[in-house]
């Protein structure tokens, strides 16, 4: 059960920078506030609203899967991004033809 208490909603913990332009707060990505406020203001969003949006987003994504198919299959494999880029096969691929694919210039009837 949620209990609405003003101070818990509007006092925000400090953020940690994770990349150029992105910080993390409450285990949640946010834009670096320094990039906001010049042309685009931030709002005084209470904590419950942020959490609600995140929860609703996840529910919405699940809904989209169910909307399009009875079952969502996954590879069941770990992400491989920590391994760095893989090696290409080196096999030859077709290349752009020297002959243009465009239609020839039209012969106009006047």
């Amino acid at each position: 059960m949620r209990r609405f208490v003003y101070m818990q909603q509007y006092v925000r913990p400090e953020a940690t920078r994770v990349s150029d332009g992105v910080v993390i707060r409450l285990k949640h990505y946010e834009v670096d506030p320094e990039l906001m406020g010049q042309q685009f203001d931030q709002q005084d969003m209470p904590a419950w609203d942020t959490l609600r949006i995140v929860d609703d987003r996840n529910d919405h994504l699940n809904w989209m899967h169910e909307h399009f198919a009875d079952e969502t299959l996954v590879a069941g494999q770990e992400a491989e991004l920590d391994l760095g880029a893989g090696q290409p096969s080196g096999e030859p691929y077709p290349t752009l033809s020297e002959v243009s694919a465009r239609h020839p210039k039209p012969i106009l009837p006047y």
Binding site: L61, M64, A75, Q77, L81, G84, A85, G86
Partner: peptide
């Protein structure tokens, strides 16, 4: 993976495809 691709994981596969619209 044949040309050096790395799988980005199940979580992204599910989440990002559903966010396509």
């Amino acid at each position: 993976r044949k040309e050096g691709g790395r799988y980005t994981g199940d979580e992204m596969a599910v989440g990002d495809w559903a966010s396509r619209h």
